[in-house]
Design a protein around this nucleic acid. Structure first.
Lengths: 117, 117
DNA sequence: CTGATACCTGGAGCGCGCTCCAGGTCAAGC
DNA sequence: GCTTGACCTGGAGCGCGCTCCAGGTATCAG
């Protein structure tokens, strides 16, 4: 049950302070605690959620869709929809990987061609 | 030795007419022939080059870097640099694939977790 | 010859995902 | 008590990679 300052969270997650605030503003991050003085204080749960956000973001999910997912996660009766959304995203990640692998083959061929000169 | 109108090229490559013109403007596409009336007329070579551009773009190479590559390709004595640039990019594509695969594992775990509820 | 359609140019505009800024507040160390 | 540095807010700005637009020209079918 540790608590973290914004600076610590930035360091741990690799997200900038501005990005953390931005995510909160647009509703990706919700109910972050504050100290009596008004500073943010992140919990372990918050860090866990940020991990998920990072995962979705790095795999190319648009912010709008992440907001949709965040919204679903605020309502307990949406497990099926969450699964559907994540499955759909997983499919898109698989496609991305396949595309990259195919294009990488082209790249290798081009390199080999140059090497043969 | 076929010749293609902009519309045909757009259809074949999946790039928009605007994107084709944009690529030309910024120096990714060079020396596209014109009809006497001033319309663009693409060659098979141009289509081949567009294939390469697509490959680089889809694998996330920034436009600036693609311009550098295009520049190198205009000079015959730059084979080594072209190889270096492509090898470097290939490395980045490998990293992208690895990252996606790792994040996809997280995604699968999350989905399984939801399914278990 | 006449439309209709595809294409031309230069330049402005846009959506995304942050990032930066000004002007202030809080808190820990001396 | 004072300094210093991390943090606060609201809002503007930015870099990327296109995309759209206005106003005009070429080409082709009938």
């Amino acid at each position: 049950m540790s608590r973290y300052t914004p600076g610590e969270v930035a360091q741990r997650t690799g997200l900038s302070l501005d990005t953390l605030r931005y995510y909160e503003r647009i509703g990706l991050l919700d109910g972050i605690d504050r100290t009596p003085g008004g500073r943010r204080e992140y919990s372990d749960d918050d860090l866990g959620w940020l991990e998920i956000l990072r995962c979705l973001r790095e795999t190319g999910m648009p912010i709008q869709r992440m907001r949709r997912f965040a919204e679903l996660c605020r309502d307990d009766d949406t497990i099926a929809e969450r699964i559907a959304l994540l499955e759909q995203h997983d499919q898109s990640v698989r496609e991305q990987i396949a595309m990259l692998q195919a294009q990488r083959a082209h790249l290798r061929r081009k390199i080999d061609y140059y090497r043969a000169l």
